[in-house]
Design a protein around this nucleic acid. Structure first.
Lengths: 337, 337
DNA sequence: ATCATAATTGACAACGATACCAATATAGAT
DNA sequence: ATCTATATTGGTATCGTTGTCAATTATGAT
């Protein structure tokens, strides 16, 4: 609030204790080759005159910042907050900081945010998904720090990728439903199938169903972002078509839960009349009854590993050779299938 | 990845089109008093040689950055992701960017993160809650940009505060429960009552119950972060005490929903045997059946307003006189009371 | 055509920290 | 005591941009 005069600089600290500016600098950033007495002197002076580091200046000279640009589609869902939590935890104890941007599931927004963030000379970049605009890819090809794409490992990564195989997820659910004896299977997606990775999941799901001689009967792709309400709408639309169905796979748990609640409210027995399966494994799935069958995705771990990879690359310690890190999926069998 | 030679600077742009560096600078940052021809020349050159602004350098000279330091407790809950979404939306179209830190509900972490973030000379600061360490307050007293504390408006704010009255929330629920005829009321909290604002809510709740001649019968404060599971544990503990109860107020919806599911699984009729009420109004409350009675908090709007305030202060346009902005709470009457 | 005013452009010096290299002090070996 | 190797300190230039003020050019009024 009050900001009388200007903030003290290294020069002031140095003058205060009669050493050179560069020595003060070394103390402040824990550089090697500093005697104990010098360190104490400088630290005391800094303390007294209330010196605060100015990273901007340091970054200009040193060329690199301690900022990690993280671009996710949105925070208002169950996936990305967990990823961001994981990233931040992995960065704990380092000087690295997350600079966050939200693309609203739009490649052009992503591009604009990235362009802006690159002007800060970040030390690393974390994006979501493997699909980006051409411009985005071009900008990143000139970027010299580590780049991690999170969530999806089915495809070409720019640098590193940490996530899960969307195809595997689709296959897992397909196999589960068929093994359980369901024969008339439908699919419900949302948001015009954004992001792209949900398409990969659906396509693999459909292909596996065909392989298992139980082809998909029908599907609904809703408009707008996934929500419980939209899941209810999805199952309603599906049932109103009058097609004989015995199981539905939803693009995510929010949709599936919404459908489950719809069924409960309308006395449609799950799974006797219709079986429901979701995707993500959010906490809610396990707590409600009946428990929802779903594929759980290690969201926090994805973020955590992404953060660790960035950190290791920046520290240049034990840089792994691998570029793609698919983490394990787990089918959680509830009572809705 | 490849970063051959160094990135082109303003000097390179200027040299390329034969103007002075400062003129190129003016074009790049849309400064006034630039002729159309100059603008075109410079923009074309910048385009050709692939010039990218270096905000670090600009920030060093200009003293202020376009970074907004945002410190929240955690992303893995239903409150803060919405707030961050709101902040980011409010900042859309400006150059301002969110730099995120997570305190894990710990004042000392908050202090350390803030100390680190201030070295980046942010243009504004957004914190959660009104309770901070002394050091934190001291650091902020020297900070010259806007400071917004989000979530809670019951108390002294450092600069501005946007949120809700925790006391009002407690009172609303107390009045509702009493009006509904409940007489033997209990409370369940978690996380050792972190953050502090949950205490304010509980205290106001208890005080109002006393005023209404229906004092709180008992309460349980659980360890660890709120979750569905812990809510189930809470109601279980409460019921096992064998005390006669007819309603329970939970510190948040996660706990309340967990309790609801526990009751459903154990054939405890809600609200006949016991009524349940939560706090926050997460989407799930309205979709399950029975719908959960709760107080809905305008989380996105809080973030949005906080972002707008910061933006206005930085732009020095229409700075509002008000310092505290309590937003409206809404009691959502479900079927669990 | 002349002058006053406004619009446009440029020169220079910062902003604060750190990389690089040189100078000095200290310790250890003989 | 002398010399070498090492640890510690200091001086200077520089990172890329922009604020300030001065110089130049265009515009309009008389």
């Amino acid at each position: 609030m009050n900001n009388d005069a200007r903030a003290p600089t290294l020069k002031d600290v140095a003058a205060h204790c009669g050493v050179s500016v560069i020595s003060a600098s070394r103390v402040m950033r824990d550089a090697p080759n500093v005697s104990k007495s010098l360190r104490e002197k400088v630290e005391r002076s800094a303390q007294i005159i209330g010196y605060k580091r100015n990273r901007i200046a340091g970054a200009l000279r040193g060329q690199a910042t301690d900022l990690i640009a993280v671009i996710v589609p949105s925070m208002s869902n169950h996936v990305f907050p967990n990823i961001v939590d994981g990233i931040d935890d992995a960065l704990q104890g380092s000087q690295l900081r997350v600079v966050l941007g939200m693309s609203k599931y739009n490649d052009i927004n992503e591009e604009a945010i990235l362009r802006d963030m690159l002007t800060w000379n970040p030390a690393g970049v974390i994006l979501s998904g493997l699909e980006h605009s051409e411009k985005t890819k071009e900008m990143l090809s000139y970027f010299s720090g580590p780049i991690v794409e999170v969530m999806d490992t089915d495809g070409e990564s720019i640098d590193m990728a940490v996530g899960i195989s969307m195809a595997e997820a689709g296959i897992l659910i397909a196999q589960h439903l068929v093994a359980k004896g369901y024969k008339r299977i439908a699919y419900v997606g949302a948001w015009g199938e954004r992001p792209k990775r949900s398409v990969k999941r659906r396509v693999a799901f459909e292909a596996e169903l065909i392989r298992l001689k139980t082809p998909l009967v029908t599907s609904v792709i809703l408009d707008g972002e996934s929500s419980l309400e939209r899941g209810a709408k999805g199952i309603k639309q599906l049932l109103e078509r009058g097609i004989d169905l015995d199981a539905v796979f939803f693009a995510n748990d929010d949709l599936a839960l919404g459908a489950l609640f719809y069924c409960q409210a309308n006395d449609i027995r799950v799974p006797d009349e219709i079986a429901l399966a979701g995707f993500n494994g959010i906490e809610m799935c396990q707590s409600i009854s009946p428990r929802l069958t779903t594929v759980s995705t290690p969201r926090y771990e994805i973020g955590r590993l992404a953060g660790e990879l960035v950190r290791k690359h920046i520290g240049r310690t034990e840089i792994p050779d691998r570029k793609v890190f698919p983490l394990n999926l787990e089918l959680i069998e509830g009572s809705t299938t």
